[in-house]
Amino acid sequence: MKKYQVKDIIKHYNSLKVLEDVSIEFDEYKTTCILGPSGCGKTTLLNIIAGIIDKDSGQITGFKGKDMSFVFQEDRLIEWKNVKDNISFVLKHKMDKSQIETTINRYLKLVNLEEYKYYYPKNLSGGMRQRISILRAFAHPSSILIMDEPFKSLDINSKQIVTEFFKKLMIMQNRTCILVTHEIEEALNLGDKIVILSERPARVKKVIENTFISSKSKADKIIIRRQIENELIGNLSKCNPSVLLQKSHR
């Protein structure tokens, strides 16, 4: 199995150390969830992988020259473009007009959203907008999909719908996916592998193979959830002992 890898990544913002010797292996065609408290440096790590910002030191293997797709916390749709044009915006440099048209039609059909082809973002709900943003990422020909807390700004109902939408697309169009989240449930439901990061400066605390994804066993889910919670409570206790007390009383 081909591996994508980051090794011993260190990053400072002025004197503030954000990432400390972060090493992660990302399995091809699998979803790796990076789980950690808010503000620990998860997005910084994604930006380094995406090539937006430079690392101070460390190695990145397998990502160079690879096409990547992105889903952000916000949908980042262009308001004056309809669904078709929003998707075609990221495809223009990749294919000609007829190919773009065919690709968009194929993807919209794949997820039964053909009727929304000429809708403008303003006429779509938050959940639907994020679904289009995910569809745009899948329609863009790439081997790696980077997602930065894509379900964060959605309400509970939309979150469930959009999560299912993403899972469906992942089954149909498999990609190597790196998903950053701070929600345990999201990591449990989507990640083949869960990487837990510590408080800032972020270090890899634990890597868990999420057997629940293949087994669908409730027992597996409970065990893995406990492992994650133990690691995260360890994190929280450092910054706020009262949270630890509340958690252990539950």
């Binding site: 937006i52 992105f70 952000f72 980042r76 990221v90 223009k92």
Partner: peptide
């Protein structure tokens, strides 16, 4: 123009002319 949209375009390697034509001019 929303800088996040520009970042999105950069990440997807959208050409500068397309960005000008499809985002800045509109």
């Amino acid at each position: 123009v929303n800088s996040k949209i520009i970042t999105m375009a950069q990440l997807y390697n959208v050409g500068k002319i397309t960005v000008i034509k499809d985002i800045y001019i509109p």
